[in-house]
């Protein structure tokens, strides 16, 4: 059963950036978009087993640090080779300055 899990405070992530969040043996990436919204995806690239948290957020795109593959982190859509498989996304809610993801 998915549960809302506290991931971080809203102030933990700069705008247009992301952080890594490890929980229950899995890794997630939490994003703070330029328009102030929060998103969550799987934490590792679908191309190879690389943490996206070292990557670069540009607008609504996360670029993987290994081969520069890109995903739209709002939908998980693979946008640029060498990534071909979409990234899993997770629901996010913000309450009282805290970011929760449903995992």
């Amino acid at each position: 059963m998915p549960q809302w899990t506290l991931a971080c405070k809203t102030t933990d992530i700069d705008a247009e950036d992301l952080i890594r969040f490890d929980h229950g043996g899995a890794t997630y990436a939490i994003y703070h978009s330029p328009d102030g919204k929060f998103y969550a995806t799987a934490g590792r690239c679908t191309h190879e087993d690389v943490h996206l948290s070292d990557g670069l957020v540009m607008d609504y795109v996360i670029e993987c640090p290994k081969h520069n593959g890109q995903f739209d982190y709002r939908t998980g859509e693979a946008k640029r080779a060498p990534v071909c498989i979409n990234l899993k996304t997770y629901p996010v809610k913000v309450e009282g300055g805290q970011v929760f993801i449903e995992v």
Binding site: H47, E48, K66, H67, A81, P82
Partner: peptide, 10 residues
């Protein structure tokens, strides 16, 4: 070569 270069980096 786009793919071969990805392998070169891996």
């Amino acid at each position: 070569w786009r793919w071969s270069h990805a392998r070169h980096h891996t």
